[in-house]
């Protein structure tokens, strides 16, 4: 069966012919994923560092919960957000269901636990090394958070990439909350799901190859940058 092969021609025609539409899908995917991961990073990095350093009752419980949430099934997350954002749900008045923002929220929810959990681990390890020095300088645990986040920056890039991986590969949640509306909430992964259901397996596979190439490019860039940076400021 010739369908088993991924014809290079179909990838090419994807990229060239009918280009506006396809480019839009790629841009939307990137926009949703990068926004979600950026926001999750802005919230998750300080939160993870705080969880690593600040002692409070119930801390262990929260750590276990966050670690569990890393495996949160995307469909469940999607369903929960769907029920929240639906017109009949508590946040229905915002009119966010079936919009890119809803997909960002879904990915944010999925990515946040990963970033918090991995950040906590990284920062906790670094703190054992820095604790005496920071205390000697008169900086308490809270005041040490910016220092630790900055000095762990190259490990944290990997953390963000892990989040990016989860977000960009995700389809279950964004399909539910985004609705896979052509030209509006259709992303790379939901397109793949759609083309598969249309039986156009070569096109679906070609889209998959494009998605993986994009992921590869982003990862290579991030890896390269953090490598160069790490060399610049000493191996971590």
């Amino acid at each position: 069966m010739q369908q088993d092969a991924i014809p290079i021609s179909s990838i090419l025609s994807l990229l060239t012919g009918d280009g506006g539409n396809f480019l839009g899908i790629i841009l939307l995917s990137l926009q949703v994923t990068i926004t979600a991961v950026t926001c999750a990073g802005l919230v998750g990095l300080p939160l993870g560092a705080g969880l690593a350093l600040v002692r409070f009752p119930g801390r262990t419980v929260i750590i276990v919960l966050v670690n569990t949430m890393m495996g949160f099934p995307p469909v469940v997350a999607g369903l929960a957000i769907f029920l929240l954002l639906s017109r009949s749900g508590p946040l229905g008045d915002l009119g966010l269901l079936f919009t890119p923002k809803a997909m960002m929220i879904a990915q944010f929810v999925l990515v946040l636990p990963i970033i918090v959990a991995l950040t906590r681990q990284t920062i906790e390890d670094l703190w054992t090394e820095y604790q005496d020095h920071m205390t000697s300088l008169g900086a308490g645990r809270l005041r040490s958070i910016p220092t630790l986040l900055w000095d762990a920056r190259f490990s944290l890039v990997t953390t963000l990439l892990a989040g990016l991986g989860r977000a960009s590969a995700e389809v279950g949640a964004i399909l539910i909350v985004g609705g896979n509306i052509a030209g509006f909430t259709r992303t790379m992964t939901t397109s793949i799901a759609l083309e598969t259901s249309k039986g156009d397996l070569p096109l679906a596979m070609a889209l998959g190859v494009v998605l993986m190439s994009l992921t590869l490019i982003i990862n290579s860039l991030a890896f390269g940058i953090s490598r160069v940076g790490a060399r610049f400021s000493g191996k971590s």
Partner: peptide
Amino acid sequence: AASVLVAIGMLS
């Protein structure tokens, strides 16, 4: 980081 945020804002 700031320019990424601005770009995202413009896209939205």
